[in-house]
Structures are given as C-alpha cells and as structure tokens.
Design a protein around this nucleic acid. Structure first.
Lengths: 239, 239
DNA sequence: TACTGTCCTAATGTCCTACAACCTAAATAA
DNA sequence: TTATTTAGGTTGTAGGACATTAGGACAGTA
C-alpha cells in the first residue's frame, strides 16, 4: 500500500494520522479492513513504531479504527464515531463560513424561540450577564468575542435542552474565525460594528425576557443574517 | 500531586487519561497549569513513559491540554476544544431522546427544504438509493436502521453544505438508541411501524425529487414528529 | 544598571530493543 | 476426525538512549 505524505507539519504523528485518514476517506481502506501492522507502517513512513502507535491511538480515540491486541487495527464503520471533530483552520474560506452561518440560522433561531418560551429565571440571568459583559468590553479589544459566544451559549442553555446547548457550543467555536475575519475586513469601522452588534443582541435579549417567542426568533434571525453580511456573506432568509 | 486510579480497565493509557481528566474536572488542575512531567507521571502511576505519552497524546488530541517541547503540557481553556464528544449510552432516558429529536427537527426540516432546492442529480440518486435499501431490508432485521440513517445523511448532503452533513451525521448516531427503544416498546407492531416509516420517507423523497422545498420541509417535520411519537415522545410542532 | 552571549538543566519528541499478552493457523498427536 | 501443541505474527508495555527545544543562571561588557 502506498501513502501520500503531502502534509508537512513538523509533528510526525499528525502526518501519519492525516495520511491514514486520507486513505480511509478515499475508500482505499474500507470499514472492516485491517490496517497494515505497526511495524510495517513504521517502515513505510520511515518513522519509529512509537510514532505510528501515537497516530493509531488518535484514530482509535476518534472512533475511526479499533485495534485488538494480537490481531491488528480495523477500520470502523463510518458514522460510529461518538465524536464530531472539525479541525480549526479547515473553516477558512467564504464558502465554509457560509455553511456555518447556515447551521447557526437553523439552530439558534429556533433556540431563541424556545428560550423565550422555556427559559428559567437563572437562565435569563445568565443571558443578561453575558450581554452586560459584551457591553463592558472596550471595542471587543479583549473578551468581547468570548462574551458574544457566551451570550449565544446562554441562549442555547435557556432552551432547557442540554443537547442543543452542546451542539451550539460546538458550532460557536467555529464562529470565532469568521468574527476575526470580519474585524480584518478593510471597510470595517470597528466601533460602528460593535454598536450595531450589541443592539442586535439587546433585541434578542429583550424578546426572550418578555417571553415573546416569535419576536425572539425574528431578532435572532436578523442578527445572524446581518452578522453574515458583516463577514461579507450572503445567506438566504428562512422562508 | 496525588491521583486516583479508581478505573480498572485493562488498558493502562485509558486509566491515566481518566485520572488526569478527573483532576482537571475537579479543578485541581486549572487552565494554564502545567502537568507533571512525563517521567514523573510514569513513576507516580507505576507505568512506562510510553503509556503516559499515549495518555497525554489523547488529551492533546481532544484539545484538553497542549504540550510544548522543552517545557511541558499545559491545561487549555475549556471551550477551545475542536471536538464535540457525547459518549454513547449517556443518551438513554426519554428526556434525552426528546432533546435529540428537538435538534433533529431544527436541522433536518430545514435541510430537507434546502435539499429540494439545491440537491444535484448525484445527491438525489444517493437519496433514492438509500430509500431503496430501506425497502429492501426485511422488517429492519439487518441493515434497516443503517439504511434509515443513511437516508437522512443523504438528504443532509444534498443541501450542498458539508457542515450540515457532518452535524446531522453526528446527531443521527444518537438516533440509533432511540430507534432501538422504539423496537422494544411492547405495543410495537413491527411490520406496521416499518410500513408507515417507509411511507413517510417516500413522501420526503418525492418532495425533494420534485424540487418542492416547502413540501419537503413539511414531510420531514411530519416524519420526525411521528418518529418521536413512535418512541413515546411528544415534541411540539414548529410554529 | 542594563544588555548579551554561553552554559547547563529539564522537558518533550523520536528512535531502538526487548518482552508480555494475545490471536491465528498450521502441524502434530490421540 | 478431533483435540492439542507449536510456531509465528501483532498489539501492549517496559526501559534506555539521543535529539530538539525552551528557559534560567551566570559571567562578561557597555
């Protein structure tokens, strides 16, 4: 079996992981197939068995393969993995940002409605606190982005659905990149952007506090569409 | 520093991982703190450095710690993790199932609409193929559940948004448990359930093939609400 | 004092060998 | 044929060695 090492990070195990994952993605290694032995892989890649072992340990920890002592490592069926991993940096182009925004729109618009309907007093306090933190930071110099993401996490938590909260938390992390991209845009008048952004969050906040589900959904949808626009991305309104 | 080894799996690295993770969860190791050196950990746990290295490699791969050559391994801040991990089995009660169904409704209803609007010919062929596989299996004896999940994945892929597809794939895995729970319900007339389920999928399929976005969304929403009902769970229709 | 360059130490990263634990399958014995 | 043993291969663990990198101590210099 041949492997491509087009990666060039100085970290050897990562290169092995990528190479093996690529083989699986390309279908050269199908579920149920047995990987070459560690010794064989070590010779193929020109590294020691330790490095190969660390690479396979990562794949195993990701649920991609399962290794059994005395036999070998086997590719698992594709979707059996209990984890969802998307490496930071893989979401860098506009198309990827648009994809993330689309998922945000799906999840968070409804989440805002549910938060207005079902949020407890404690949940609402957390939302208000996050909003205050956003207001308190100076032009997002320091923790402004964190406060922003915290706000969205708090809204997701207010749905009372932990599963939503986890997924939204996960997706939020990928917003960091696009937020940074917004700040780097040439025409970005930072203070104006911050002001508008906070106003949008206030609208969401007030709707949730008032228990107005439809209004909260609308406010969240406006916010996400506008945020996308500020990042230079056009996404369609939900029809 | 003291560590508890209450775990007793025969896999040493897993025990180290759990012990270290417990220290972090309990707050004995806070973000920014430096872990003891590999040599020290090896002596503490009474294992070789190889085992410690594999444990730390897993924590690093999960984004829990970051290790720098020449210095040590440091606990990262909590939310920077690039992965979403939900261990199978943690979703077992009705409340958890309801949560998962709620997320499904958020994501897949819209995804069905997008699939109808944007799905390519290849995407549609995949959807049809999955539906045929569902029809072909005998009372879901063998691969019926797989075919069901494959159908939903194919719909998600047809949105043209890989990010949606990944998230839906992830969520789908958690459906397996609830589907199994449905099959165990006492009143479950299996053949009738299968027949109805397939009919619902046909409706989704036909709407997507016809490019009818609103119809596809409605069909998907009906399907998810009914599927939840079959699992004994009541979820509210989207208003 | 402040700065600079060197040396030393410690930590991770990689390599190597050896053995233990485990599995498969062929060879062998009853 | 059937059961047992044996041989070989594979992952898991142990332990030592060196490479590479980072940071501190310390002298020397302006």
């Amino acid at each position: 079996m041949k492997f491509d090492l087009l990666d060039r990070t100085p970290h050897l195990p990562s290169r092995i992981v990528n190479a093996l994952q690529a083989e699986i993605d390309k279908g050269h290694l199908k579920p149920g197939d047995r990987l070459p032995g560690e010794q064989a892989l070590a010779e193929t890649f020109g590294v020691s068995r330790n490095v190969v072992r660390e690479a396979i340990a990562r794949l195993r920890s990701d649920g991609v393969v399962q290794s059994r002592q005395g036999i070998g490592a086997f590719v698992m069926r594709e979707a059996a993995s209990p984890i969802l991993r998307i490496e930071p940096g893989t979401l860098s182009d506009r198309a990827s940002f648009a994809n993330v925004f689309e998922v945000r729109a799906m999840l968070e618009v409804r989440a805002a409605g549910l938060a207005a309907k079902r949020g407890t007093a404690a949940h609402r306090r957390a939302i208000t606190a996050a909003l205050e933190r956003m207001r308190g930071t100076d032009k997002w110099a320091d923790g402004g982005v964190d406060a922003d993401l915290e706000f969205h996490r708090a809204v997701a938590l207010a749905t009372g659905n932990d599963y939503i909260a986890k997924v939204v938390s996960f997706v939020s992390e990928h917003m960091r990149d696009s937020i940074m991209a917004t700040r780097r845009r040439p025409s970005a008048r930072l203070d104006a952007i911050v002001e508008v952004t906070i106003a949008e969050h206030v609208a969401i906040h007030d709707a949730i506090m008032g228990g107005a589900a439809a209004e909260a959904r609308a406010a969240m949808e406006r916010h996400i569409i506008n945020a996308a626009a500020r990042a230079g991305i056009e996404i369609a309104a939900d029809d």
